[in-house]
Design a protein around this nucleic acid. Structure first.
Length: 291
DNA sequence: CGTATCTCCTGCAAGC
DNA sequence: TGCTTGCAGGAGATAC
């Protein structure tokens, strides 16, 4: 049996959490298997995701050729001539290719059947993800969809720089951590990487965004770019172990300095890392290194 | 308008 | 051992 499988899977026995690097890795992984293929049908076993999968989606995309696959923030777009399938992985979603007919497990909610004997399988235990449809019109593309229209810049582009962030932060009383996690300011900075970037930049997560100095913003921007691009290079990370198709566990987790290390020693100064809550999110920082 | 809180869901861990 | 409870989190919805 030939299983031309996308070689990156999450270990489903462990908690996993797609952040921007995982989404980018997923997009890169599935892209070559999808582009140019024809969608023969869509099998929906569980339509109840964050929003219902459109009931007519199968009829919209059947017999359509996949023109390209793209990413905006944590959204993946699968583009056809008539519109775009918009997929968000939520907190526990994953996408990978299986051989046609592969028996689904309980959380394998959707299969997009292709004309080459492969199915793009969507798995999502917590069902926080979404699969939506944006129909093409004359003057719009998928980025004008309600969920994408007001997204901030991509963190790894030049558009995301210190000048931009300084302007956006001016007068803001919001904590810097929740500020950079707001997708209207910049997309793709999830909880893990927000914690890590603020540690690298030496900024206390509680600091009001508006009082941060330009030089600190320059450093913060660099740290965000570095932490995200490193993770992408390494094929993404997860909260626990990340398993590649070659069977080797991921190793980026081992380079996390603060996330998941509350009560442990700071890698820089050996102080005990503290944990607090910010915006209902676990926040870990070094009280000595991050002022 | 800006900001904080609530909410969806399930798997896992801790506590009894 | 088996039950209950709490927690984790992306990001839109809701409430100030």
């Amino acid at each position: 049996m030939t299983v031309d499988c996308f070689p990156v899977l999450f270990n489903d026995s462990l908690f996993d959490m797609p952040e921007l690097p995982e989404v980018e890795t997923t997009k890169r992984g599935i892209q070559p298997h999808l582009e140019g293929r024809i969608i023969t049908s869509l099998i929906v076993r569980q339509p109840k995701l964050r929003w219902p999968i459109p009931a007519e989606l199968n009829s919209y995309i059947s017999n359509q050729t996949i023109l390209c696959v793209s990413r905006r923030g944590k959204y993946i777009g699968i583009h056809t001539a008539t519109g775009t399938v918009i997929i968000h992985l939520g907190m526990s979603g994953s996408l990978y290719l299986v051989a046609a007919g592969t028996a689904p497990l309980f959380h394998d909610h959707v299969d997009m059947c292709l004309n080459n004997g492969q199915w793009l399988r969507y798995t999502d235990p917590r069902r926080f993800g979404s699969i939506l449809w944006h129909e093409n019109t004359n003057d719009t593309d998928w980025r004008t969809h309600t969920l994408l229209a007001s997204l901030g810049p991509e963190p790894l582009t030049d558009e995301f720089n210190a000048d931009y962030l300084i302007k956006r932060a001016k007068g803001k009383t919001q904590a810097i951590k929740t500020f950079i996690m707001n997708s209207k300011q910049v997309v793709g900075v999830g909880n893990i990487y927000a914690n890590e970037a603020l540690f690298s930049a030496g900024i206390n997560p509680h600091t009001k965004a508006g009082v941060i100095k330009p030089k600190q913003f320059m450093l913060l921007v660099e740290c965000i770019k570095t932490v995200l691009s490193k993770a992408i290079e390494q094929g993404g990370t997860t909260l626990k172990d990340f398993v590649g198709g070659d069977g080797k566990p991921g190793y980026f987790k081992q380079s996390l300095n603060v996330y998941g290390r509350a009560g442990e020693a700071c890698t820089t100064c050996s102080s005990t890392l503290e944990e607090t809550r910010l915006g209902q999110r676990s926040t870990v920082f070094c009280p000595k290194c991050q002022k």
